[in-house]
Design a protein around this nucleic acid. Structure first.
Lengths: 144, 144
DNA sequence: GTAGACCTTCAAGTAACTTGAGGGTCAAGG
DNA sequence: CCTTGACCCTCAAGTTACTTGAAGGTCTAC
C-alpha cells in the first residue's frame, strides 16, 4: 500500500476528492507529500485518520467537534473520559433534536388528517387548514 | 392597528427585523410601504402572512416549500389536496430523518457505554474506542 | 490524434439567516 | 444644549460543510 492518490483515498473512505482538499484547506487533514507533477500522495495512516473523521461526521459531530476529538486522540495527556463527555453532550443534543422532530411529526400528521376530513379537496382560498395557519391557529396545527 | 413598524411585526410574529428584511429581499414577503423617513410600514395581513411563513418554517419546510405553499394559498385554482400532498411528502422526510437520528442515538449510547467499561478513563492513545474509530471498527460504533 | 480518466488551482454557489459597519431620527433626562 | 438610548436604514460579509464550475495539465488506450 505505497502511493495512494486522492481518488483512491476518497474511494476508500467514502469521501470525494474535493472534500478531501477542503479538509486539507481547513487544517483538518495534514498537507500530504506531492509527486513531481504536484499530485497528492497519501499514506496508510491518512486513510485511518480520514476514516475517523468521516465516522465522526456520520455521527453528526460538527467539524469543530471532530477537531476536538482528533486532538484528544493524538494528545497523550488526554483521557478517554474527555471523549466520553463529548459524546455524551452530543447524545443529549441528538435526543433534543429527536424530541423536536417527534412533535413536528405529530403536527404534520394532524395537518394531513385535517386536510382529509375538513377540506376534502376544496379550493385553496377556502381551505380551513391553510387559512388557519396564518391566524392564531385552530386545527391543532402550529402547536410548538 | 394602523402603522406597524418592523420591530413590532418582528415581535408579533416571533421573527427578527433582519430576518424580515431578508424575506423581503428574497421575495417571500412583499415590499411594504414606506414612511417619509424610509421606514417600512406594515398592515394587518402582513402579520398574517408572516405568521403563516414562520409556522411553516417551524415545521421545517424549506423556503422553497413555503413559497409553494403561499402560492397555493393565494391561487384560487389550487386545491387543498395539493397542500396535503406537500405536507405528506414532508412528513415522510421527517420520519426518515428520525430513523437516522434513532440509529445515531443507539451508536452514541454504545460509544459512551464502551468508554465506561473498556477504557475506564485511560489515556487517549490507549483508548480502545477512539482507536477503533479510525480502523475498520470493532466496538459496535460506526455502524451505519 | 483524440477521447477519457485522472489530477491541479482558484472562485463562486448553496441554505437561511446573522452579524457588523456606519449612519439617521426622535424623545427623554440632566 | 447635549447626550443617551431606542428605534430605524443600507450594504457587505460571515456562518456551516461542502459542492460546483472554469480552465488547465498529464497520461494511457484506441
Amino acid at each position: 500500500m505505497g502511493a495512494i492518490k486522492i481518488g483512491e483515498l476518497a474511494a476508500r473512505t467514502g469521501t470525494s476528492a474535493p472534500t478531501i482538499r477542503y479538509y486539507e484547506q481547513i487544517g483538518l487533514l495534514r498537507r500530504p507529500e506531492r509527486q513531481e507533477r504536484g499530485q497528492r500522495v497519501y499514506a496508510g495512516d491518512d486513510v485511518e485518520r480520514l476514516t475517523f473523521i468521516r465516522r465522526c461526521r456520520e455521527f453528526d459531530f460538527s467539524i469543530d467537534q471532530v477537531r476536538a476529538l482528533t486532538a484528544l486522540v493524538q494528545d497523550p495527556r488526554s483521557s478517554c473520559t474527555d471523549a466520553r463527555d463529548l459524546a455524551a453532550t452530543h447524545l443529549s443534543a441528538v435526543r433534543a433534536k429527536m424530541r423536536e422532530l417527534k412533535a413536528l411529526e405529530r403536527s404534520l400528521v394532524q395537518f394531513v388528517k385535517t386536510c382529509d376530513t375538513a377540506c376534502a379537496g376544496g379550493p385553496g382560498p377556502d381551505c380551513v387548514v391553510l387559512g388557519d395557519l396564518g391566524k392564531s391557529c385552530g386545527c391543532g396545527v402550529g402547536v410548538r
